[in-house]
Design a protein around this nucleic acid. Structure first.
Lengths: 334, 334
DNA sequence: TTGGTTTGCTAAAACGAATTAGCAACGTAT
DNA sequence: ATACGTTGCTAATTCGTTTTAGCAAACCAA
């Protein structure tokens, strides 16, 4: 690959001059128009591409942001990632993404790796294992924005959905439809967004005098999610026979629908279903699944905007702790 | 961030010594065990992290591979990406991914960007716009592996599914079930994998004397995929009334199912359905959708393995043009 | 014709690591 | 005492840029 030096030699000037010309600083640095022209011409002809590694080393800026999500193969996160990539590129930034897959320690290790990679900023769906390293980043004034959830102990911006309100609206939607024996199926992750969703359910049900006992809650161990979760849900539904069920996430919803299919339950007559987080194909299910939609694009855009603000690339955001409202997508399952 | 120099100062030795100690070259370079120990200790205490940017500049190796896919939000590609990331990390490589979204010129630009980023190797789902730049890469002996498809004009390794055989098996599956008026719904992308699929259909049908006219083929303009494609499919199905339909891709399948739902057709009695490429939730549809499954993990693993071979990190692969067999996932829609 | 300003360009240092070549001190053989 | 090898370490260069400081020549004013 041709370097700036090669280019300089070709034109017969110093590397300094070439650098100025290429970076549009000709006027400021008094490089004559004629020479600038020649340099640009030669650059094109050589197919010169600046070596970003060298630029990064010299300037201390990689123009890369690190994005850590739970699982890039998950519909929610891959869509989030896509929008984030788009948005970031509008500011001249690239995105490197990585999945923690909720493996203990993986997140910590990923931050570490991104650090070595000298990324300029971080977009993180955090878990407890990352707290220490995130604290360290923040102490060094490195821009970090949390997304989808936050660690309560951290003074760090975040963009997420209003999980509490989302579930409340979901429950109220079911109540309005005269369902009263409602169950909530979730996953036992000790993270804020899950706690908020659970609390939203318990509070609303309690407020209506409908929270009779803990059996209205099914908490699947996260580790089981890929194994016997379907059987567990099936067993639960058979035993408790709720009139309606609210699934706490995308993937729990899919597992739940599988259980319902196995049981050959009639939705919504035997069992009404609402799922937190929409899915590309929920409208194709029979009946189509009613969902609580998270506005993925707004979340992504909001997070990037705050991050760019923190990095001094865009106007600094005033509000740094953002909760976005969900909306109910009414279909046929409830 | 503490640099190697800082560390050297702290221990009171030269940066050279520290570098050797940290890179496990103490024995070879005759750094005493005692000193090595002290250096390692100090490194831990300082929380020293090597600056990968500096390492990359010096060594000429970023330990990063670039992955260009069509659309990271697509189930197929996000799963591919995930496995690729996993596999690459086993060789000590990071992955940077980007989506072309089949936008003209975007792929070209992405290769360019990755080039500036000095990635060590490329994994690409190519399109015509990338041919020129890929040729240039290959000429410079930069490792490139194509995935999911290939450009016929290029002497470049690839890993893909046997699209022709996949469609043939799908058609034969339908024929065995006594469907004879079969349609093929595809997208008008001028890419090899699409051509192979179409050819598989036309050939098999012709061989059975069942290819009567071009009306058994519906080719959607790719640009319309997100807009009026559902209406087009709907109109087509109403007009041609095939007994069975084979959808050529994941996303065309989903659009098709939407059309079928709108028409309130009874699957498989009114219309049998087979989709090329499985989807996480096809088993949840009613009826569950029969699909031609692409072994995503094998593809990802195969591609990474060949690439690592080309990069001299793993054993060089003997076979560099790999077609993997698909399998039919029998469900209820056909 | 001296001194000052502007014009147009460049030398050299720096970023943080890896690596090549080599140096001092000591031991050993002759 | 001389030569040679080994041990244990380091100075200096390099990668490809950006940037600071500065230099020579031309121009201008008095």
């Amino acid at each position: 690959m041709a370097s700036l030096k090669d280019l300089a030699k070709l034109v017969g000037v110093s590397p300094t001059t070439v650098s100025f010309a290429l970076n549009g600083r000709s006027r400021e640095m008094r490089i004559s128009e004629e020479l600038t022209e020649r340099i640009l011409e030669a650059a094109k002809q050589l197919g010169y591409q600046p070596n970003n590694i060298a630029v990064a080393l010299r300037t201390g800026q990689t123009k890369i942001i690190g994005l850590i999500v739970e699982d890039i193969a998950n519909h929610f996160f891959s869509n989030l990632a896509k929008t984030i990539e788009d948005e970031a590129s509008r500011f001249g930034y690239r995105v490197v993404y990585c999945s923690t897959e909720n493996m203990a320690g993986k997140g910590d290790e990923l931050i570490n790796m991104l650090q070595r990679q000298q990324v300029d900023g971080y977009l993180i769906t955090p878990d407890a294992s990352m707290e220490e390293r995130m604290t360290a980043l923040l102490k060094r004034d490195i821009p970090v924005v949390q997304i989808d959830r936050y660690l309560p102990g951290l003074d760090c911006p975040y963009v997420m959905v209003d999980n509490h309100q989302g579930v409340v609206s979901g429950v109220e939607f079911l109540l309005k439809k005269k369902y009263s024996r409602i169950s909530f199926v979730t996953v036992d992750l000790d993270m804020i967004q899950m706690k908020e969703r659970k609390l939203g359910f318990v509070e609303t049900m309690t407020a209506h005098g409908l929270f009779k006992n803990k059996k209205q809650l099914l908490e699947l161990p996260y580790s089981s999610v890929r194994e016997d979760a379907v059987e567990r849900i099936q067993a639960y539904l058979e035993k408790e026979k709720p009139e309606a069920v609210l699934f706490a996430t995308n993937y729990v919803g899919i597992l739940g629908l599988r259980a319902i299919k196995n049981l050959q339950l009639n939705v919504p007559d035997d069992l009404a279903v609402v799922c937190f987080d929409d899915n590309e194909v929920f409208d194709l299910c029979t009946p189509a699944i009613t969902a609580i939609r998270q506005p993925i694009e707004s979340m992504a855009r909001g997070a990037v905007k705050i991050l760019m603000g923190e990095m001094g690339v865009a106007k600094k955001s005033a509000r740094k702790q953002v909760k976005i409202q969900t909306s109910i997508v009414r279909r046929d399952s409830a």
